[in-house]
Write a protein that binds this DNA or RNA. Structure first.
Lengths: 205, 205
DNA sequence: GTCTATAGTCGGATAGAC
DNA sequence: GTCTATCCGACTATAGAC
């Protein structure tokens, strides 16, 4: 956890193993001993984040994947999309996951081996599920660019609240995105998802 | 430019003035001499980015601000929203501004004095213009939370393509977001903006 | 203004005692 | 496994020649 915080806040190079060891109440030499070095610790953080995300999003994703083959009507499909977006929002906006978000955003800008572990784990699964749902909605191949890009924009709306965190706080006059603020965000996200889904549906063959 | 690239890629602490000076073909000692030190150089980068964004977004923002008081119909207002979102997308997705995006995203996650300069300059002006347009669209006070949050999600969709850059490339099978890819992104952004605006309009008093 | 040389600090890794 | 002591490299800033 100390390493997640430090790497997320400062990046790989600027974070110091000395500070991480001290924050964790551990000895500096324990890092090379247990993780094989600073880089090993960094990858261990990526794996821990991937596991944590899968743990939190697992139930929602499992339900979608399980219910997918049973032919669903559009209302049910839309509800699944809403659940997925909302699940991501609630997972990524919790105070405990702020450090995850910083770490992931860094890896997005400058991907390393750690990004592969994050992408091939939780991210790909979420994107695949969302594309499947949107494809059914639009009556089109989920692998089509338009569907995939729409999926990115839906998840992107959520990500933006972390990526543009300081701008959100400044604009809204908030000091944090707590439970109360989260309710307002959720209402707007739901409205947007519904609007975009409806537009997709209108274009369906 | 060398400093923008280095600070954007590595962050303030990890970027070295040695590497920046070498990349710029300048002498190491020139940095303390001309900018007062590493921190002064960092703030100079922030100011340069703010000025560059204002330069690129200025015409679009000026037109919106000038035309705002002349009572506009909804079609014109929607067109202005589309122009603003598209302008931001084209500004922020150009290869030349990739370094800006990395710098800004870092400041969003961990704001310093540099963020204030970015926010009070171009960001606030864009957000104010967009809230004004959306407020008129929805027939509501532009200062209402719902309007401001909707504005954040609209700009957030654009930001997401930079913030989740690696995930976008991996999902789309792209190697970069060039002009061709940009056209596809633009079409989806336009559709989303139209859908969200229409939903706002339906809720208008 | 521009450069070299250097001072002073802090980084990660490791040797070796326990 | 855990700790202290230490090595060696890289960093920013500055003194001082030109």
């Amino acid at each position: 956890m100390a390493a997640t915080e430090a790497f997320g806040r400062l990046g790989f190079e600027a974070a110091s193993t000395r500070a991480i060891a001290e924050a964790a109440g551990a000895n500096l030499a324990a890092i090379p001993y247990h993780f094989g070095g600073k880089e090993g610790l960094y990858l261990a953080v990526a794996d821990a984040i991937a596991a944590g995300m899968l743990e939190r999003m697992g139930p929602v994703l499992g339900a979608i994947e399980a219910g997918f083959n049973a032919a669903q009507d559009r209302a049910t499909t839309l509800a699944m999309v809403q659940t997925l977006v909302e699940g991501l929002a609630f997972t990524m906006m919790r105070p405990e996951t702020a450090a995850w978000a910083r770490f992931i955003l860094r890896e997005q800008a400058e991907p390393t081996e750690a990004f592969t572990r994050l992408y091939e784990g939780p991210m790909k699964r979420m994107l695949t599920a969302l594309c499947g749902l949107l494809g059914r909605f639009a009556g089109r191949d989920p692998a089509k660019s338009e569907i995939k890009l729409t999926a990115m924009t839906l998840l992107g709306q959520v990500i933006a609240f972390r990526a543009a965190h300081a701008a959100v706080l400044a604009t809204m006059g908030w000091t944090e995105i707590g439970p109360g603020e989260m309710q307002e965000v959720r209402a707007v996200l739901q409205a947007n998802v519904a609007a975009i889904a409806q537009a997709l549906e209108r274009k369906a063959p």
